[in-house]
Amino acid sequence: MTAISGAADWRRHLRWLNLLLFLLYPISWFAPLMRAGLLPLFGMSEISLVSGLQSLWGTDVFLALLVTLFALVAPLIKTLGLALVQFGFLDRRALPALNVIGRLGMADVFLIALYITLAQGMGVGRVETAWGLYLFTGCILGSVVLGLVEKSRPVD
């Protein structure tokens, strides 16, 4: 196996990892990000990105639009754009813009982490992180890394 064919195989795997995000993002949107409860005696209710968005639409439409843009739309546009670059349907000059779009998803991760930290510090109830937060964070970070690797890849 030559170095050129090895590099081509490696890039093909990156394409599939990027496409895997189309499956993992929706799972992370419905997965529990955190569990919250008022008192330790009562059960904890699970909050997902989608359930949080549903609550936001009823109280603050502007914030709901921002969260929808940052958490749902931006990561999908970034993933789709990167796939188009990887398969040769979009020019590589789009990569810097795609990487900026992909980083918008990190705003949601930081916002969720800030809410959890504030809620825990207030001592009113109990808030625990759940596996969906780690999945969503992993998807965002994976997308950023895939974009950086694609950007650093030499042009064929």
Rank of each mutant, 00 (worst) to 15 (best):
M1S: 11
T2P: 09
T2G: 15
A3V: 14
S5T: 14
G6I: 13
G6S: 14
A7Q: 13
D9V: 06
W10F: 07
W10S: 08
W10T: 05
R11E: 14
R11K: 13
R12V: 02
H13C: 04
W16V: 14
L17I: 00
N18E: 06
N18Q: 05
L19M: 15
F22E: 02
F22V: 01
L24I: 11
L24C: 10
Y25P: 03
I27M: 03
I27A: 04
I27T: 01
P32K: 03
P32G: 08
L33W: 14
L33V: 03
A36N: 02
L38H: 09
L39N: 05
P40N: 08
L41M: 01
G43S: 14
S45Y: 04
E46D: 15
E46G: 13
I47A: 05
S48H: 04
L49H: 02
V50N: 12
S51H: 08
L53R: 06
Q54K: 11
S55W: 14
L56P: 10
W57D: 08
W57C: 02
G58T: 03
T59M: 12
D60H: 15
F62I: 14
L63C: 04
L63M: 13
A64N: 00
L65D: 12
L66H: 00
L66T: 04
L69K: 06
L69Y: 11
L69M: 15
F70M: 07
F70G: 00
L72E: 01
I77V: 15
K78E: 15
T79L: 01
G81L: 00
V85T: 09
V85P: 14
Q86M: 14
F87E: 10
F87K: 01
F89N: 07
F89T: 04
L90H: 01
L90A: 10
D91L: 11
R93F: 04
A94W: 13
A94F: 12
A94Y: 08
L95E: 04
P96S: 00
A97L: 12
N99M: 11
I101A: 04
G102W: 01
R103L: 15
L104G: 10
L104N: 04
M106P: 00
M106Q: 07
A107N: 00
D108M: 00
V109Q: 04
F110S: 00
L111D: 07
L111M: 10
A113D: 05
Y115Q: 08
T117W: 08
T117G: 09
T117V: 11
L118N: 06
L118P: 00
G125S: 03
R126C: 05
R126Q: 14
V127N: 05
V127Y: 09
E128Q: 11
E128K: 02
T129S: 15
T129A: 15
W131N: 13
G132N: 08
G132Y: 07
G132D: 07
Y134V: 08
F136A: 13
F136Y: 15
G138Y: 03
I140Q: 04
I140C: 01
L141C: 08
V145P: 06
V145E: 01
V145D: 06
G147D: 02
G147S: 00
E150Q: 09
K151G: 02
K151S: 09
S152N: 10
S152D: 09
P154E: 12
V155T: 09
V155F: 02
D156H: 09
